[in-house]
Nucleic acid binder design. Structure first.
Lengths: 232, 232
DNA sequence: CGGTGAATTGATCATCATCAAAGGGCGTGG
DNA sequence: CCACGCCCTTTGATGATGATCAATTCACCG
């Protein structure tokens, strides 16, 4: 287990703040795996045997509905874990996971974690914290989908991106636009048009880099009221 | 603590399968509270001090975005718990909760549960299970919002309703239509029109009762393919 | 009764999906 | 090295879906 893995563990909601011996035990018994871009990590409906922690790269969680349509449920980066809540129960994964860049993951056996929780309940609390992060992200996504337009969601996406970076010049888009569209719940064509609309608001796109003139302006756009009548 | 409370505890993902003494201890130290329809249980941003379990009635979880728009995140009924993941950490509630019918809840102190988890790690696993139910529900909601039309979501909603009930004649709608609209992420007017469209598919509405001629037909409608191009 | 809020319906507009076409980057095979 | 094909991206035209604004009806309640 290399230093990058330890770093990821310490930065994750799931494993941070664990007593060192517990963490070491877990890490010693977990597997590090590499996936190349496009590879499937697990499929919706498969028995959930493991919890994953992203050491490097990007992962997409998605769902294929009965009709065959794909919905991107989450896009995760370094230091995020997934599958926590499911792998502890005898249940199938509710989503599929796919590497969207070359990436390395730590794979921890669910049964082992289960045993560890019994011995060290703090770990259970940590896992609850980690799932809470997921929960929160999904709640925000539902809010965005219900109360904001596609352009606004894109603006929000760019603001989030920029906040991770110091300079807003030539901000690299983390993955291709088809995927961004899926993440935002719109079609690629609509994304293209949404970018065009943002050009009037100081956003320029060149290839897979974005330049943001005025971050405040963009933030305002994302939060503009649509005047909901159901607010009493 | 009356029998209804015990019943709810045993039917909940959160407290079922707990050793009797642990359950009794928890219950003995929790409060039963009543709310009348429309009353606020807690507000988004408040410190999360408690976990709630619904003994009777209906509760709405919603979020007010920075723009002031309301998005209904979940609607919960008997035996469901909420606030589990949050109340165990020193964080504010990410949503607001409101009683949408007269209802009785069991309120369990977060700090107490935290102590109990340390003593009895099984409880931690149970809570993980409970949050997993929430997680799953949200994932489904995201999928529905991204990949289905309003009419389809309404069809799905009715199918879910009907599956709880044995006869599909005069199926009572559990709450008013404005709220159903919010739950489905559409405006009340659009809901009205969606109901009108379903009339052609064997669904009739009288007041707050629905009659479904052919449940299978409705299910098909909800799952009809929209022919997604992003499925490779 | 008068008033208030829920529900419906009509008319219109904004948003977004869909279908079609075309340009550009990139890797593969000749 | 170049040609070809493939996929991503953009743009245009059109249609479906749902929001908004306005008006009306109805049930309920003080």
């Amino acid at each position: 287990m290399n230093s990058k893995s330890v770093e990821a563990a310490q930065a994750s909601a799931m494993l941070s703040q664990l007593p060192a011996p517990v963490l070491e035990n877990l890490m010693a018994n977990s597997v590090q795996r590499s996936f190349s871009s496009g590879e499937t990590i697990f499929l919706q409906g498969e028995p959930a045997y493991a919890i994953f922690l992203i050491v490097e790269g990007w992962v997409k969680l998605y769902r294929i509905s009965t009709s065959g349509a794909e919905a991107v449920v989450a896009i995760l980066k370094r230091n995020r874990s997934f599958g926590e809540a499911v792998a502890l129960r005898d249940q199938p994964y509710p989503v599929s996971a796919e590497a969207i860049s070359d990436c390395t993951l730590i794979q921890i056996d669910g049964k082992r974690i289960r045993r560890q929780i019994i011995e060290n309940p703090e770990l259970g609390l940590n896992l609850l914290a980690a799932t809470q992060v997921h929960l929160h992200a999904l709640i925000e996504q539902v809010e965005q989908l219900k109360a904001r337009s596609g352009v606004q969601r894109l603006a929000e996406f760019l603001v989030d991106l920029a906040e991770g970076q110091p300079n807003h010049n030539r901000l690299p888009l983390p993955y291709n636009k088809t995927l961004i569209a899926g993440h935002l719940g719109i079609q690629p064509e609509s994304l293209s048009r949404a970018f065009a609309k943002l050009r009037d608001h100081g956003v320029r796109i060149e290839g897979n880099h974005a330049t943001i003139d005025d971050l405040e302006l963009l933030r305002d756009l994302a939060n503009q009221d649509k005047g909901q009548p159901w607010v009493r």
